[in-house]
Nucleic acid binder design. Structure first.
Lengths: 122, 122
DNA sequence: AGATCTAGTTGACGTTGCTATCTAGTCGAT
DNA sequence: ATCGACTAGATAGCAACGTCAACTAGATCT
């Protein structure tokens, strides 16, 4: 089922804070190099739905400003030029450290939520 | 190790968005009833560090305004009065639905981050 | 009286994802 | 030739919410 209820959709925009940049870095790490429009598609396929350009492009600009990615313009394949991004060494460090932190955090939250649901499910 | 690096501490404030309210509801569900100051302690023990009153109290006010919790003043045990909160039926519904959504979300993010880290660890 | 712990409130602030709108290149159909 | 449709990116304004900082206030102990 692709359609999610509104409550979840509303919450996703909050859940993405502090995580979307990591997801972008991770995608860049996997893909080697990519550009904004394609990143939206990749993340959508990975289950991060409804991402819009107004979210991704400023984010990529922030990442570049912080030195976590570098960019280069290239011609598009039947379309406008594309701004390709590559993760930097600094970006990889941040990704590794932050991803570990997030894994811990999400596990802690998971146990808080899971504990309540199993004990209170009745 | 209790001390976390600054990067993770900074990120936690973002990671809490859209999740902290669920964590509070879940804690309330587990505890049956509790009050702000004690909730901070409970969540700290559960691994959500550095929560401040300026975060919890406005959050509880929002939850009450939305009808997800109800409150009642009672005398404190050697200290000022306490405002006890209890989760409502609506709160339980929201908790169950949203917790399920969060579990899905965090799994998706986990696989995006995990995929990149294992493939890109080299 | 002062200090400390408990307990709660409030206003200002900053980050960041979202909305909406804009420019612009390519291509197919009418 | 023109009109969408798709690709690709930029940006101004908005709103939500966790944090910071400062405050009130009760209880207890020295």
């Amino acid at each position: 089922m692709v359609t999610e209820d509104r409550a979840t959709a509303d919450r996703q925009t909050q859940w993405l804070r502090g995580v979307l940049d990591l997801a972008v870095l991770a995608t860049l790490q996997s893909a080697g190099t990519s550009y904004g429009y394609a990143l939206i598609q990749s993340l959508t396929e990975a289950g991060i739905l409804d991402l819009k350009g107004g979210t991704i492009y400023p984010l990529l600009a922030r990442l570049e400003q912080e030195g976590l990615v570098s960019s280069e313009w290239r011609a598009g394949h039947g379309g406008p030029g594309r701004k390709y991004f590559t993760i930097t060494a600094t970006g990889r460090e941040v990704l590794i450290r932050s991803a570990a932190g997030w894994t811990d955090f999400s596990a802690r939250i998971g146990s808080i939520l899971g504990g309540a649901l199993s004990r209170g499910g009745r």
